[in-house]
Amino acid sequence: MIFITTILIIMALYLLAGLVFAIPFVIKGVAVIDEGARGSSWGFRLIIIPGVTVFWPVLLNKWLHASKIKRS
């Protein structure tokens, strides 16, 4: 029981972090990592939020890379 509860709490924290990350990502980050998202609709930005919440480490990594390239 403690084992499963721990896993569930870790999952919840991971998803919560993803949700927090999703806000700046759909506002700004998405257009940095994918040119197809530049000038895209709000509908699109909302529809990717569930995915961002789950796959946020991949996107964060891409975002960091993209801004590094921009700076250099």
Binding site: V30, I33, D34, G36, A37, F44, I47, I48, P50, G51, V54, F55, V58, L59, K62
Partner: peptide
């Protein structure tokens, strides 16, 4: 379902 948009195809 959450990755069904083309955006995910490109970015994953």
């Amino acid at each position: 379902a959450i990755t069904s948009h083309d955006f995910w195809l490109h970015n994953l």
